[in-house]
Design a protein around this nucleic acid. Structure first.
Length: 590
RNA sequence: GGGGUUGUAGCGCAAUUGGUUAGAGCACCACACUGUCACUGUGGAGGUUGCGGGUUCGAGUCCCGUCAACCCCGCCA
């Protein structure tokens, strides 16, 4: 017989009804003459009461029951005595007096306890099904589903169609390391799993699809982080006949719907827009967290001509002197703490950290004090608007090093000082990314985004004069300091595309072999188009408040890309390798 | 590839700066208990201290190596 109710729904409205519940034993309290069992399903928990004395069959049935056994119970809903009401659960006012109990399945002793919040992650990965049965992961998966439904509904309303693109795809040397799949039919040849459906979605535009989206699985064989998995999900979007602003509008509308559905929050649009340069200068990051201030301040101007070697050297080498004001940290800025902050900026390749502390007696303390004139010190203090109790933290270095080091320090201090408000969702766009990064080792250019990214029209002439300063029609969408998506307007003109390939030192022959299919497609009347991909897992992570991407993925991998649940990757049968004509080098197996 | 943290019972932890037989709690097993909700009480069982080597009269503790999980840098068009 099926259940009549779930375990989270019964209230005083159902008193005297005969019900049947099924679920797992959350806990069991055997008081001898009376036994309480909390039965749990995904909707909640209900207390069962068993008085076995006048029912030997019931007595036998419930005696061996332990945690996480699966049971079905039939009984009558009755109110609990007034002083026995449990206000911690929705069903706390009632209980079910059991008349019939059936054990559907037993359960081995649990490897860890469900109310243990400190369980090691190894176990949570190995016993993933138990982790889902606990509340958190299960809730995260339900929220994840809800968000994907909101996405699909939104895109459908906006005239997008979802198209699946191949998983067995073509390897290209650009970008991340590919996961390879050997071809049996073509021995020695390989498919690659897609890092993103990039080329397919552009080809869909040439195919006249006009508005495409896909909740797409992507694969990158790179080292992992708390917010990176080797296989992850992108919300992939591409549109024809649009410009950057049109895409921004579509994505902003999407987030309005998502935030309304998931958080019941009305976010305002349009999102703030920062150029890449502004983001780096003010926040030391291309994904600024604007939930707190502590902006970076450029002291290069006021310190121009300083005789302090640290500043002088940086400035004369074309660098900058940047600072942040760690407000109110003078008291905690011990020698040890300042050393730790110095380590942080050194980690980001800065040479060191100069600090200026204004202590509670308004006395200025700094290892650089004797090298700086009074007017320089005052200029620094007024530039960052420092007051009693503040600590000014200064890095003198090349622009990218100084800004990134301070950007990182800014986040570290904000976290440790609890400067970041909860339940605030700051979306913003970062745009005008550089088109290329210059690789000084090989004196060559590398695309910041990908080689199909269109330059800004007003920067096209820079391609021949100064490609390094050309800006791209590329943009990221950032939520609370996390890059949740990025994209670009693509090149739809074969001649411009060839010019870019030339700059990237990709020969016609190579371009043909690697991207010939795309180039040919572009030459058959490709519409202007552009798009963006959202990191779906990261988005769900932010909206659930999870601290790792693993907590919103049903079956995630470890930081070494292994799966503790299935124990993969694993060795394969010699016959399988033989079919693929693959030999494993001796001594390689572990 | 590099840096760091952790590894003791099924779980989360303790073990006097190298010293007797590695402990208590939860879980497990048994018994008792009619209003609990992390039930309680009594008793029991449970250990290759991740693995391998070394120093020492003696190693959970010190040293070297290794494995695993996690965090960060590089990497992630």
């Amino acid at each position: 017989m099926k259940r009549t109710h779930t375990c989270g729904i019964l209230t005083e409205n159902s008193i005297d009804e005969t019900v049947r519940l099924t679920g797992w034993v959350n806990s069991r309290r055997d008081l001898g003459g009376v036994i309480f069992i909390d039965i749990r399903d995904r909707e909640g928990v209900t207390q069962l009461v068993i008085n076995p004395e006048n029912n030997a069959e019931l007595d036998d049935a419930c005696r061996p029951i332990r945690e996480e056994w699966v049971i079905s119970a039939t009984g009558v809903v009755r109110p609990r005595p007034q002083d026995m009401i449990n206000h911690n659960i929705k069903t706390g006012a009632i209980e079910v007096a059991v008349t019939e109990l059936h054990v559907d399945n037993s359960c081995k002793p649990m490897p860890y306890h469900f109310n243990d919040s400190q369980v090691s992650e190894d176990l949570r990965l190995k016993y993933r099904y138990l982790e889902m049965r606990r509340t958190n992961l299960g809730h995260h998966l339900r929220l994840r589903h809800k968000i994907s439904k909101v996405l699909r509904d939104y895109f459908d309303r906006q005239g997008f169609i979802e198209v699946e693109t191949p998983i067995l795809s073509k390897s290209t040397p650009e970008g991340a390391r590919d996961y390879l799949v050997p071809s049996r039919v073509f021995p020695g040849k390989f498919f690659a799993l897609p890092q993103a459906p990039q080329q397919y979605k552009q080809i869909l535009m040439v195919g006249g699809v006009e508005r495409y989206f896909q909740i797409a699985r992507c694969f990158r064989d790179e080292d992992l982080r708390a917010d990176r998995q080797p296989e992850f999900t992108q919300v992939d979007i591409e549109m024809s006949f649009v410009e950057q602003d049109d895409l921004f509008e579509i994505v902003e509308g999407l987030f309005v719907d998502v935030m309304r559905a998931v958080k019941d929050i009305e976010i305002s649009t349009p999102f703030p827009r920062l150029t890449y340069k502004e983001a780096m200068s003010r926040f030391g990051s291309d994904k600024p967290d604007t939930r707190f201030e502590m902006h970076l301040c450029d002291l290069s101007g006021v310190l121009n001509g300083s005789e302090f070697k640290v500043f002088e050297n940086a400035l004369s080498a074309g660098g900058v002197v940047m600072a942040i004001n760690a407000r109110g940290t003078a008291e905690i800025a011990s020698r040890k703490k300042l050393d730790a902050w110095t380590d942080t900026v050194k980690l980001m390749d800065a040479h060191g950290l100069v600090w200026v502390k204004i202590d509670e007696h308004n006395e200025i303390k700094s290892p650089a004090k004797k090298f700086l004139s009074e007017s320089e010190l005052n200029a620094i203090i007024s530039a960052v608007n420092a007051q009693t109790g503040d600590v000014i933290l200064i890095v003198a270095d090349q622009f990218s090093v100084a800004t990134q080091a301070l950007g990182r320090l800014r986040l570290e201090i904000a976290h440790s000082q609890n400067l970041i408000p909860e339940n605030q969702y700051n979306f913003l766009w970062v745009h005008d990314f550089p088109l290329f990064d210059h690789d000084s080792e090989n004196d060559s250019y590398i695309p910041i985004h990908h080689p199909f990214t269109s330059p800004r029209e007003d920067d096209i002439e820079l391609l021949s004069t100064d490609p390094g300063s050309a800006r791209a029609q590329a943009y990221d969408v950032v939520l609370n300091g996390v890059e949740v998506g990025g994209g670009s307007i693509r090149i739809h003109d074969a001649a411009l595309q060839k010019r870019i390939f030339d700059l990237l030192n990709i020969s016609d022959a190579d371009a043909g072999a690697l991207f010939g299919h795309l180039l040919e497609a572009l030459s058959f009347g490709a519409p202007p188009h552009g798009g963006l991909a959202l990191g779906f897992d990261r988005l769900v992570m932010l909206l659930t408040g999870a601290s790792s991407i693993r907590d919103v993925i049903a079956f995630p991998k470890t930081t070494r890309s292994s799966c503790l649940l299935t124990d993969s990757p694993s060795c394969v049968d010699a016959a399988q390798l033989d079919e693929l004509k693959i030999d494993i080098r001796p001594g390689t197996e572990m």
